[in-house]
Amino acid sequence: MNQDPAINPAGLRHRAEAHANAFPALLAEAEHLAATVLLGDHGRRRAGMGDEFWQYRPAVAGDPHRLIDWRRSARGDEQFVRQKEWQAAQSVMFWVDDALSMTFAGGDDRPTKGHRARVLALALCVLLNRGGERFGLANRGTPPRRGEGQLSRIAGHLMALPGESDYGTPNARVLPAGSRAVFLSDFFGDPQPVSDALTRATDRGVKGALIQILDPDEEAFPYDGRTVFETMSGKTRFETLKAGNLRDAYLKRLADRKAHLQDLCRATGWRYLCHHTDAGALRALMWAYRALDHAL
Rank of each mutant, 00 (worst) to 15 (best):
Arg200Ser: 14
Arg257Glu: 06
Pro193His: 08
Val126Asp: 14
Cys274Lys: 10
Arg145Asn: 15
Lys113Glu: 09
Asp108Cys: 02
Asp215Arg: 06
Arg271Leu: 06
Ala288Gly: 09
Asp108Ile: 04
Ser91Glu: 12
Asp293Ile: 01
Gln83Arg: 05
Asp166Pro: 05
Leu127Met: 11
Phe229His: 05
Gln55Ala: 12
Gln87Ser: 10
Gly131Cys: 05
Gly269Phe: 00
Arg45Thr: 10
Trp86Asp: 06
Ala121Thr: 02
Ser101His: 09
Tyr289Ser: 07
Trp70Arg: 06
Pro162His: 13
Ile213Asn: 06
Ala121Phe: 04
Arg173Cys: 07
Ser233Glu: 05
Val206Asn: 00
Gly48Cys: 09
Leu26Pro: 02
Arg82Trp: 09
Arg134Glu: 07
Val96Gly: 01
Ala6Asp: 12
Phe94Lys: 08
Ala59Gln: 11
Arg257Met: 06
Gly163His: 08
Phe23Ile: 07
Leu296Gly: 15
Arg153Cys: 07
Ala243Pro: 15
Ala284Trp: 09
Asn21Ile: 14
Gly131Ser: 06
Ala74Phe: 02
Ala181His: 03
Arg266His: 11
Ala281His: 05
Ala259Val: 00
Asn8Arg: 08
Asp77Pro: 00
Asp4Asn: 15
Ser179Lys: 00
Met286Ala: 14
Ala30Gly: 14
Ala99Arg: 06
Ile68Trp: 04
Ala160Glu: 15
Gly132Thr: 13
Gln262Met: 15
His260Ile: 01
Gln192Thr: 14
Trp270Ser: 03
Cys265Met: 05
Ala16Pro: 12
Phe135Gln: 05
Arg290Ile: 13
Asn8Pro: 03
Val182Lys: 06
Ala220Val: 13
Ala181Glu: 07
Gly132Phe: 09
Ala61Lys: 07
Asn245Ala: 10
Thr169Gly: 10
Ser165Met: 09
Glu230Phe: 13
Gly76Ser: 11
Ala47Trp: 06
Arg13Cys: 08
Leu26Thr: 02
Thr231Gln: 09
Ala201Val: 01
Arg57Met: 09
Ala197Pro: 12
Tyr56Gln: 05
Ala209Asn: 08
Arg46Lys: 15
Asp4Gly: 09
Glu31Gly: 03
